[in-house]
């Protein structure tokens, strides 16, 4: 009798674990990108040499200059006041923040796959505001532009 109960509990445990894993797998991990709005340079903490362009301090557009294409993030909430969540510098270590170097590991088609595939992945830009020298996280959406 005890064995049966143990077996049932074990099966239930395994099923619940699998069920949880299946559900978790449906959520793609967010991608975090770091910008320094003060001097338009990628933070040395994450990448020592890759230059980025941020169109004006407090601008709504953030552009990676890549070899073949522009990759642009715009705040998810349109308007001049996107929601900015202040974060502590040490917190960014847990976000696995992405850099230009990381992006350049992929070719153009792979990058398109990362950003264009249907899914529920969220993107965040971590920016350093010039006004108060603090870090803020902004949810952004990916877009491309061609003249």
């Amino acid at each position: 009798m005890k064995k049966s109960i143990c077996l049932i509990i074990s099966i239930l445990f395994v099923m619940l674990s699998l069920s949880f894993m299946v559900r978790r797998s449906q959520i793609e991990q967010p991608l975090y990108f770091y910008f320094n709005a003060q001097d338009s340079l990628m933070s040395k903490k994450y990448s020592g040499y890759d230059k980025i362009t941020s169109k004006g301090i407090g601008s709504l557009k953030y552009i990676y200059l890549l070899e073949n294409d522009n990759i642009i993030f715009t705040p998810k909430e349109k308007g001049d006041n996107p929601k900015r969540l202040q974060i502590a510098s040490k917190d960014t270590l847990g976000f696995n923040v992405k850099t230009i170097k990381w992006l350049k590991n992929y070719n153009g088609i792979q990058r398109d796959s990362i950003f264009l595939r249907k899914g529920n992945r969220k993107y965040y830009v971590i920016e350093k505001q010039a006004s108060d020298n603090k870090l803020y996280m902004v949810e952004v959406v990916f877009m491309q532009e061609t003249e």
């Binding site: 959406v141 877009m143 532009e145 061609t146 003249e147």
Partner: peptide, 20 residues
């Protein structure tokens, strides 16, 4: 009009297919 890092474009096409 601005378009990516283009100087002074006449037209610009923006891809928002995933988000919108």
């Amino acid at each position: 009009l601005t378009c990516g890092n283009s100087g002074d474009p006449e037209g610009c096409t923006s891809n928002n297919l995933k988000s919108e």
